[in-house]
Amino acid sequence: MNNSLIIGQYVPGNSIVHRLDPRTKITIIFFFVFIVFFANNLPSYAILVAFAFASMFASKVPIRFILKGLTPVWFLIIFTFLLHLFVTKEGTLVFDLWIFKFYSGGVIRGIAIAIRFFLLILVTSLLTLTTTPIEITDAIEDMLGPLKKIKFPVHELALMMSISLRFIPTLMQETDKISRAQASRGVDFRTGPIKDRIKAVIPLLVPLFVSAFKRAEELAMAMEARGYQGGEGRSKLRELKIEKMDIFVYIIFIVVIILLFVTRTYG
């Protein structure tokens, strides 16, 4: 019944972007977030937009999935644009009606900020659209590896993440099952005053917690029976490998950074 469930927003595919090492993707996005704030003129913005759109097309993720991912943030983008439009009083007056006085500086800055915002969200959502949560987990475990030296529980954290991901569909099914059972006993989750609807959550939450604890207990026992004793001495089936493609993408990205710094104006 739940076969359609997609965890996160991953869109299966086999594009270049899908096949990149997740560490490559995370690293590039990390630096992209920084350099976005260095763009300050038309050519520098054009370079960033070109890079983001090229990545988007290379991922072969249908545009509608990307737009869907952007829906919750449109409001934010428009809001920041308007904010700058109203607050900035630089340049020439381009629009004047009653209390609305817009200056050219405000328009430009508003557009610039909106573009930055849009690029940030586009690129980060490309990560989750083309990378399974478990790959992201692997990458984080690997990249946080050095922290093991200061006794930071990197392995435990990654295992927790991957087990949580694994159990999301199970718990969703369970939620559905229990809510049906309680609805059959006369609980109304959908209508009625807010107070009643909040109360209606208790018969759902209590059984969910009880069952989650029971599952955790059984899972812990099964893991122990299969010889789990923590991260030490463990080998790994999942392997992260930097391929030629990753190096190629890094080079492109470095070129983008250089171009950005060449085109941006100083002072």
């Binding site: 991957s162 087990i163 694994r166 599952r215 059984e218 899972l219 026992m221 893991m223």
Partner: peptide
């Protein structure tokens, strides 16, 4: 063990 779900660890 008995419960197929509660012993499946891998993704």
């Amino acid at each position: 063990f008995q419960n197929p779900d509660n012993q499946f660890v891998g993704a």
